[in-house]
Amino acid sequence: MAAAHRATTHRATKKALVSSIPLWFRTDQPRQTGVDYWKGPHSKIISATPGFEEYRQIHLAEHNPGLWPATPGVQTAIPADRRIDGVAEVTFGSVLAPLLGRKQTKLAYQDEINVFRRTFLYAGPPRSARWYDVAGPGEQVGARAMVYLRRRAGVRTGPFREHLNELASTLAGRGQLRELRTQVFLPWNEKLWDTPHVAHDNPVDQQFHASLLGFADPAARAAFFRSAGLASLSEALAPYASAAHAYDVTDALTFVKDGKALEHYER
């Protein structure tokens, strides 16, 4: 978050196709073993998949009670039994790109059991993901937060997506974030990521329908989630969302960038 307030308008870039895969590490081995395997051997399998524009691993803090401000009617405390350990974020180069990587994806399926106990995939409609250019010249990302929103029962996808886009545009224009990405997911379908020997249970009342990803420096991130401005925006969000789970991100590692696998990940 910039030290000075930069109120301005930022245009969003729409991406061809983005998938978000929440992950839970196995509990029969040390958590660090899972972290190391994910960003080591497993990342090499995923990075070799053709058709990617970008592949990132978003590592979430082990203790994540929830950063989002308490809001009447909105679940902001993250339940311990469903707390996510990390998210694989894949951006494809084109809508047809997933067809190019089917062979490599099968290898990823087989390897999941070595590190994860539960995974599932959220996918959005083509060109529904938006990346906002919110960083000023020379500004770097110092801390990250990831937010999953659950669409309230009875709210249709269209009004929900419209409100999310308005919320993102408001946040982008306030000059408080270094990076902002949004997705609106299609209804969850287990068959999209039905990997063997790994749990895929995702009850209807636990499913999410959008993710809002914002980045700032550590002190600014804390101030952002304590701010009266966000509390006001959250109250306006309540008619559309029944849950807002904001995670503390410990690492965001990029393994594929601009369509090319990197020799070593970038933060």
Rank of each mutant, 00 (worst) to 15 (best):
D217S: 12
A210F: 05
P72T: 02
L107T: 08
E190A: 15
A61T: 05
G124C: 03
Q104A: 09
G136N: 06
P69W: 00
G73F: 02
D258G: 04
A77W: 09
P98L: 00
A145C: 08
L233S: 07
N189T: 11
F120H: 09
F52K: 03
N189Y: 06
K191S: 12
E235W: 06
H245W: 14
I46K: 07
L192V: 14
V18D: 04
V87Q: 08
A2H: 14
V155R: 05
S43Q: 10
G142F: 09
W38H: 06
L121I: 05
N64T: 00
R130L: 09
V18N: 02
S47H: 02
L213F: 13
H197K: 12
F92I: 00
F52A: 01
D111W: 05
N165C: 10
P41T: 05
L96C: 07
T119Q: 04
A223Q: 10
G73K: 01
G93A: 12
E162W: 08
H63F: 11
A2W: 11
H197Q: 12
R267E: 15
T27V: 10
K257P: 01
I113Q: 15
R221P: 03
G34Q: 04
V134P: 01
E54R: 14
A77S: 10
E112G: 10
T33G: 10
A108C: 06
R221H: 06
R11A: 13
P79T: 05
F224T: 01
G66S: 02
F255R: 00
Y132W: 08
D133P: 05
D81H: 11
A243H: 03
N64W: 00
L253G: 06
S211M: 15
F185N: 03
A236K: 15
W38I: 05
L212W: 11
T8L: 13
S43A: 15
H197M: 12
A129W: 07
D217T: 13
N189P: 06
R83N: 12
L96E: 15
Q183V: 07
A77N: 12
A129D: 06
G259L: 02
L180Q: 03
A4K: 12
Y240D: 01
G229Q: 09
R130Q: 09
S211K: 10
V90I: 15
R156E: 14
H264W: 04
L233Y: 08
L192K: 13
A244P: 01
T13F: 09
D201Y: 08
S43G: 08
T27Q: 15
R151Q: 07
P196M: 04
Q104W: 06
R174F: 08
S234E: 06
F225P: 03
T76Q: 05
A246V: 06
